[in-house]
Amino acid sequence: MSYKTLVTFVATETGLKPLLQSASALARRFDAHLEVCCMGVDTTQSMGFYAGAPAIIYQDSLNAAKATAETLQDTAKECLRGADIRWSTDSAVLSLGGITSYVGLKARFSDLVVLPLPYGAGRGPQDEVIIEAALFEGDTPVLVLPQTGGALPEFNKLVLAWNQSNEALHATRAALPLMKQADLVNTVIIDPPSHGAERSDPGGLLAQMLARHGIQTDVSVLARTLPRTSDVLRRHLKDQAADLLVMGAYGRSRLREAILGGATRDMLEDTPCAVFLAH
């Protein structure tokens, strides 16, 4: 298995060129096709429509979204013209609520989605919608790059977050091409259940499965000595000098994580390295 179709979604010019540099480098590494989907998002909500509102207000918003999509597509073509990879672009004008269907359809027929961090300066609500749509509607793994542009990390030192969940197993299987190329794969287990199925040998069955793929992994079992699991995980990533974290995404519901927080959201808000996610 390898990644032969990569896709990225852009809705703003913020960080566009560095993102394309990183995505192109990854496509080159896997001899893959890169598709850049340029979205103009109309933020006028239908619930905000009211009787008697001038139609020109709505038309202006659509025109602005269309102009944004066209500008993004022109910029993407300019950046990729002459690149030594196979690439294509697409554009769409969408409402905020329509992002999910579009991203889900495009991601569904891709092997990997490449995105920047959804939170931080220059990011908006559409960025969070995009990453969740790729994971849930597209059922596609997502590689989130905290720093785009420049030299793409080789992903030689990987940390695999394992908690026996379906999400973690899906992420493991989806990340096999990256793990096969890594020099070191460290499996980290934080506070394993004392009465779980793997209580006598945490991570043992997983290590056996990976070994049959030619992937050697060492297992680190850690206590949760900090308030949040993500805090322990973040500290471990720095101790390992890891350049990629592989983890299952949204083991809790998205609403619960949005309100109460969770490891997925915490890592996407502040991560020392790239994050590979699958649900």
Rank of each mutant, 00 (worst) to 15 (best):
M1V: 14
M1E: 05
M1P: 03
Y3T: 15
K4L: 12
K4W: 00
K4S: 12
T5Q: 07
F9L: 03
F9K: 00
F9N: 01
T12P: 06
T14D: 11
G15E: 02
P18A: 01
L19G: 10
L19C: 09
S22Y: 02
S22G: 09
L26Y: 07
A27T: 07
R29A: 10
D31M: 05
A32M: 02
L34P: 13
V41R: 01
T43W: 05
T43N: 11
S46M: 14
M47S: 14
G48A: 13
Y50K: 09
G52T: 06
G52D: 10
A55G: 04
D60M: 05
S61P: 11
L62S: 15
A65M: 12
K66P: 13
A69E: 14
L72V: 10
D74L: 13
A76D: 03
L80D: 04
L80W: 02
L80V: 06
R81Y: 11
A83D: 13
I85H: 07
S88C: 03
S88V: 02
D90K: 05
S91L: 05
S91W: 02
V93Y: 01
L94H: 07
L96V: 06
G98I: 04
G98D: 14
Y102I: 07
Y102M: 15
V103K: 00
G104S: 12
G104V: 14
K106V: 14
A107Y: 01
A107F: 02
F109C: 10
V113M: 01
P116V: 08
Y119T: 08
I130E: 02
A133H: 01
L135V: 03
E137K: 04
D139C: 10
T140M: 07
V142L: 10
V142N: 07
V142W: 03
L143A: 08
P146G: 00
G150Y: 06
L152C: 10
K157L: 10
L158Q: 13
L158F: 05
W162D: 08
Q164F: 08
S165A: 15
S165M: 13
S165D: 12
N166E: 11
E167C: 10
E167T: 11
A168E: 13
H170M: 10
A171Q: 03
R173G: 13
R173E: 10
A175D: 00
L176D: 01
L176I: 12
L176P: 00
D183Q: 08
V185F: 04
N186V: 04
I189R: 14
I189M: 09
I190V: 14
I190S: 07
P192G: 09
P192I: 12
P192F: 11
H195W: 06
G196M: 13
D201I: 11
A207L: 01
M209K: 06
A211G: 09
H213F: 04
H213K: 12
G214D: 00
G214W: 00
T217Q: 01
D218A: 02
V221P: 02
V221M: 06
A223I: 03
A223F: 01
R224M: 07
R224K: 15
L226Q: 15
P227F: 05
R235C: 05
R235H: 15
H236W: 11
K238L: 09
Q240K: 04
A242T: 08
L244G: 08
L245F: 07
A249R: 13
A249T: 09
G251E: 09
R254L: 03
L255Y: 09
I259A: 05
L260C: 09
R265A: 13
M267C: 02
L268K: 01
D270H: 09
P272I: 11
C273Y: 08
V275F: 07
A278L: 08
H279Y: 00
